[in-house]
Structures are given as C-alpha cells and as structure tokens.
Computed example of a mutant assay.
Amino acid sequence: MEEFYSDFAQRARDLAEKADPFTRRRLLDLAQRYDLKSKPGSSRGRSSPPPRATPPTVLFSGSGES
C-alpha cells in the first residue's frame, strides 16, 4: 500500500509541473499528504476518526417488537 501512495504522490507532482499556480499548490499539498501515508509507521499517515465528544444517540427506542 505504501508504494501506491508514493506513486500517487509522484503523479500529483508531475501534474503540478504543468498546472496553473492555484492548481499547482493544491496538487503539491495532495502529494505531501500521500507522502505521509506512504511512510510505514507514520502516525500522521494513518488517519483515525476523532474521538467522540458524546456517546451515539439511540435511533430506535422501545422493546423492539413489532
């Protein structure tokens, strides 16, 4: 999986060379994020959901019988 991310980062850099300044900046930022994901053991490369501030609400209430 690391190779996939590093290859994708390089493709984004290649595209950035031919892009306008706004798109170039966005592509380079994207490449940087994929570089972080490509490094094994990188804590920033592995995104985990933020901790919940409140417990999930119950969608259904009642006995569960129809």
Results as ranks from 00 to 15, higher is better:
P55K: 10
S43A: 15
R52G: 09
R46D: 10
R52W: 10
A31Q: 00
S48F: 13
G45Q: 00
K39T: 05
R26K: 13
P49L: 14
P40G: 02
S38R: 06
L36C: 05
R52A: 12
R25H: 01
S47A: 12
D35H: 02
V58N: 09
D35R: 07
T57C: 06
T23D: 08
P55C: 05
R46N: 10
V58D: 13
D35F: 05
D29R: 04
L30D: 08
Y34C: 00
R46W: 12
S38E: 01
P50I: 00
Q32L: 11
S43W: 13
S38Y: 04
P50Q: 02
A31W: 01
S42Y: 06
S48P: 06
V58H: 11
G41K: 04
R25P: 01
R44N: 11
R33E: 12
S38M: 06
S43E: 15
L36Y: 11
L28Y: 04
T54Y: 15
Y34H: 04
D29S: 08
S42V: 06
D29C: 04
D29N: 11
K37L: 05
S43T: 14
S38P: 02
P49K: 10
R52Y: 09
A31I: 04
P49Y: 10
Q32K: 11
D29L: 10
T54R: 15
S48N: 10
P55Y: 06
R25C: 00
A53Y: 12
S42A: 08
Q32I: 07
V58R: 15
G41Y: 00
T54A: 14
L30E: 07
P55Q: 11
R52H: 09
D35Y: 02
P56Q: 07
P49N: 09
Q32G: 08
R46P: 01
L30G: 01
L27G: 02
G45Y: 03
R26T: 08
S48W: 13
P56V: 00
P51N: 03
P50A: 07
P40S: 05
S42N: 11
P40N: 02
K39L: 12
D35C: 01
P56H: 08
S43Y: 13
A53Q: 14
S43G: 08
R26G: 07
D35M: 09
R52D: 04
G45E: 05
